[in-house]
Nucleic acid binder design. Structure first.
Lengths: 123, 123
DNA sequence: CGGTATCCTCCCGGATACTG
DNA sequence: CAGTATCCGGGAGGATACCG
């Protein structure tokens, strides 16, 4: 197994692929508030198309991060909620938010410095 | 500012966009071993095209996560190394790897269960 | 050696219309 | 309500050739 194959199959890569997905983390964060219906999610996560929401939910469900409950009612009612595994992800997401909030200013400053090579800071 | 705009601009999203990038984390992990040259990186990270490697390195440099040093030699020599900011990312990457390695079995099992709906586990 | 420049393909993801 | 089906455009990213 070469480095490439390892890099593409290792646990970190797989989790990264899910975490890196635009909508997945958003959905997980929404569900941190408790179970939610499909429509509620689609309204709270502005800009998501039904296609992407469904796709995201299926992916999370497949990975065992969320559960899907269909209630035998009319009209239909489907609830999504975090599983124990999904809830364990929240601490990681929290660590990410923490790092982001702590260092975003540095990153922002670095970006501006990079984009404006000539500009000196103060003297 | 609506939820969408917030979601797309918040610190977590920006960091996620970088972290989620396939090659960025790989590069950061490689550079954890110490400064490396362009060619060394391209060899160690199998499957990366020069275009993507350069693009990844520029992105990391712009965000202040890595430094780029050009040595006035013939032939040219360029070293990339983690900045302090970049090194601070390592703990986050470590947390990610840790979560991944801890829970990957559960995820894998969930995937198999999802992909084989009919199969029962033992009795 | 350390990249750029170019082309080209694939597929992600948005919009929309429809259905059980 | 909770999706599925279909179409479509744009951009990410690979391969390759070339340059300072």
């Amino acid at each position: 197994m070469d480095a490439s194959a390892y890099a593409r199959n290792c646990p970190s890569r797989q989790i990264l692929d899910r975490i890196g997905d635009t909508w997945s983390v958003l959905v997980v964060m929404m569900l941190a508030d408790g179970p939610q219906r499909y429509t509620a999610l689609s309204r709270r996560i502005e800009g998501v198309s039904p296609k992407m929401l469904t796709q995201t939910l299926r992916g999370l469900e497949r990975d065992g991060l969320i559960g899907r409950t269909v209630h035998a009612e009319v009209p239909p009612r489907v609830d999504y909620e975090l599983t124990t595994l999904g809830r364990s992800l929240l601490s990681l997401v929290g660590a990410l938010e923490n790092w982001a909030e702590t260092h975003i200013d540095d990153v922002q400053a670095a970006r501006e410095a990079y984009d404006n090579p000539g500009v000196k800071i103060s003297a």
